[in-house]
Structure formats: C-alpha cells, structure tokens
Design a protein around this nucleic acid. Sequence first.
DNA 1: TTTATTATTTAGATTTGTCTAAATAATATT
DNA 2: AATATTATTTAGACAAATCTAAATAATAAA
Lengths: 219, 219
Amino acid sequence: MNLSIAEENYVKSIYKLQEGDAVVTTNALAYELETKPASVTDMAKKLKEKKLIDYEKYKGITLTSEGRTMALQIIRRHRLWECFLVDKLAFSWEEIHELAEELEHVRSEKLISRLSDYLGNPVIDPHGDPIPDAQGKMAKPRPQTSLDQANARRLVVTAVTDQSTALLAFLNAKNIKLGTQLEVIAHYEYDNSIEIKLKQHPAITISELVAKNIMVRPV
Amino acid sequence: MNLSIAEENYVKSIYKLQEGDAVVTTNALAYELETKPASVTDMAKKLKEKKLIDYEKYKGITLTSEGRTMALQIIRRHRLWECFLVDKLAFSWEEIHELAEELEHVRSEKLISRLSDYLGNPVIDPHGDPIPDAQGKMAKPRPQTSLDQANARRLVVTAVTDQSTALLAFLNAKNIKLGTQLEVIAHYEYDNSIEIKLKQHPAITISELVAKNIMVRPV
DNA sequence: TTTATTATTTAGATTTGTCTAAATAATATT
DNA sequence: AATATTATTTAGACAAATCTAAATAATAAA
Ligand SMILES: [Mn+2]
Ligand SMILES: [Mn+2]
Ligand SMILES: [Mn+2]
Ligand SMILES: [Mn+2]
C-alpha cells in the first residue's frame, strides 16, 4: 500500500505516542502534528479504512501490525538519513531532524538499503535512537534511565529524548553529546536541579527539564 | 517564494522545453508532465499569478527571470543527487532519474551546498548534463553534436539527451557510457542507421533514434 | 447525581491539483 | 473563403488535506 506524505507523518507520530501499547488520543496526536483535532478525526477514518490503525469513535487510536510495519520503515528512513547528514555532510545533531523529516518520504527500498550499507549499517542514530533494520527489527536499547532518575554516580550519555533545536543547542553549549561521561555531584531538592561534572570542565547545574530528557547508563 | 512540489515540477519542465527562448505550448507541457492540457492551463494561471511565467491565453508559456532562477535551483538539486546516487551509492545511470525526481524537492540551501562540497563540486551529472552552481551559472557545455550529425570519425560520448531507462539500459548493454570513445564506420542511408566500433568490441549498428540521443565531440 | 468542563466528532468550507466534457480559438485544408 | 482539424480554454466535478464553528460524548466537580 502506498501512503501519502501526510499519512506517513500520522503513522509515524502514532507510533511515537504509543510507546509500545498505549492508546493515542485525538488531542495528543493533533498537538504532536501541530494540527487540529478535527483534522485528526478525519485522517483517523482514512487510516482505519486502510487498516493501518484500530479506531473507534471516542476510543482512541492504536496501530495495527500493518501500521506498525509502515511506521518502522519510515523511522528507519528517517534515522538513516540523520546518520548520513551527520556522518557524511557534517551537520550537527540539532539541524538534522527537520531535513530527515522530508527525506524520510522518499520511498525506495533499494535507496535505503544502499544508504544503510554506505553508512556501515548503523544501529543507532545521532540522537541515540535505535534504527530498525529492513525487517523492522530494532536493537533493544541497553537499559538506560533519564538523568534525573539515575542513581549511579558515574554515567555516560546514551540518548536524548527531546530533539528540539533548543535542547540540542543547549547541550552543545555545555559540551554534552552522546558518549559523554559525567559525574553526578548533587541533587537539589528545591527545584530538582542536578549538579554534574564533565571531565576537563567545571561543574554545572542543569534543570530538571533538561535532566529528564538526557538518557544515561552507568559507565 | 515557496513552491509546492507540483509547481516545482512544472517550472522545471517549462525550463527544459524552452531550450533557451522558445515558447512552450500547453500540449507539449501536458505531454512532458504526463497530465492533461486542462490541468496545464489551470497551473499556468497560478504560475503567472506568482510571476514565475509569462503567459497569455493561447500564446504559450515562457519563464520569467525569477522562474528561470527557480528552475536552475531545482535542476541543481536534481543533478547533485544524481551524482550522489552514482558516485556514493553505486547506482547506475538508468536508475537515478526517478529517485532524483523526488530528492530534488527537499529544499535546503545548506543541504545542497554541503552535498555539493561532499561530492567535490561536480559540474556535470552522470548523464553528461551541466550542474548549475549556487548562483545558477552552468559551465557552458563544450561544443557537442548528436552522433547522427557528427562528421568527425573518431568521437567521444559526452552526454545522453534521453534519460529513459530503456535507452540507458540499451547503452549499458552495448558498453556505451560517458567518455566512451568510438569510431564511425559507416552511415546507411536507407534508415539512417550508423555503424560504430568501440575499442575491444566488434562493430555494431545503431538506429537513427539512438544516434540522435547520443551527444559526442571529436576526440 | 446533576452540572460544568474537557475531549471528540460532525457539518460545512476552503485550497490545491487534478480530471472530463463541452466550448471556443487558432491553424490547416480544400 | 469556407470548412475541417487541432489546440486551448472553460465549466463543473472530485479527492486529499486542512480549517472553523457547532454539536455531542466523556469525564470531572460540585
Ligand atoms: Mn515527515
Ligand atoms: Mn533522531
Ligand atoms: Mn520532481
Ligand atoms: Mn541527469
């Protein structure tokens, strides 16, 4: 089945909001896609018709297995293009999401399999997210927690859950990237901010919001 | 001004059919875009409104200088992606046009300038067509003629004017590519076919239609 | 358990890009 | 010059994707 660009964006967003099994609400999807709830309802009917989602009025949306397959293909294309932009064209991680948002809609199995080979068949993208293979299988991410909930002291950054330019630019300014090792110095109860130290850098304090979006594992 | 994908395809096709200065007819454009004349008339009104073409009822279409600028940008993107597909992903020249037809619509100055750098700022694409630079300037192609009109005996292939998979696959089968040197053995008046010989290959006879689409210059 | 609030859907429009069929203009033929 | 043919445009329709405003359902608060 051949999806339009709009349909692909819906399917991808539903996958993202589902996080495994949860039901996706009309409002949440409208917010994610920066559109209006009425538009989501319209599209939900179409996607149901195409058997990509399960949907009953007022009951929310979930992907069918066919829909999930579609989503994983789109995500694969998105993340491979992100790798290309960073590895080959020297873009930095906050610039690539928007571009990949468009490149992901060029549908060609052959193009993507060649691109993957060319990049050395990477399994994680520049934000630390796993890349599905041609069959839709993803490397199960190694156990990781958000920085605000980590209890070990010495940690390594494994992913970033918010790909907004604002957060990524902030992390650039603080020299935090994937693989960066850091040490937790203190938790401040008052605002849940966290003091951390990177090698060769003075200690800095980051807000709870930032900490929630940095994924880490014990080094 | 931001063009839709459909508008970009129209502008590019108009540029192609204009060949410098000629007026483009409604029918010719409909044929080129595989659409209907009525659709072309509708779009012509929109493009005129956006000042990308000069158009008066029944008088045909020409690009304004703004339209030409747009066309050259799209062509630049198209041809750079073609280079990428051949040079980096090892596609062959008959597979790339369709893919570039989609990739060309990802609009990002920065992406294209990085891609161009990455490819070594090529000035001709895999079909021998010149690539406009960021300002829209193209290397004036070295004087070349179609094989059926060449009068020198020893020639080198410089471009192919028809990018159809059918022709390109034929040329592959006959080991003819850009840079291939060949010798004209005979012209046959009856059907205007031409006998040619490539080094290390037996002589072959090619039809007038093929010869018309192979561009050459004296070696 | 009513009532108020929030979430979702429907009704009806709009924009973009396309189409078919019919009308009109331009060009070619007799 | 009249007629036939071809090219182009118009009229009216349609599908996709979106929107606003109004109606309805679900949920929370009183
Ligand atoms: Mn997208
Ligand atoms: Mn990513
Ligand atoms: Mn195109
Ligand atoms: Mn080309």
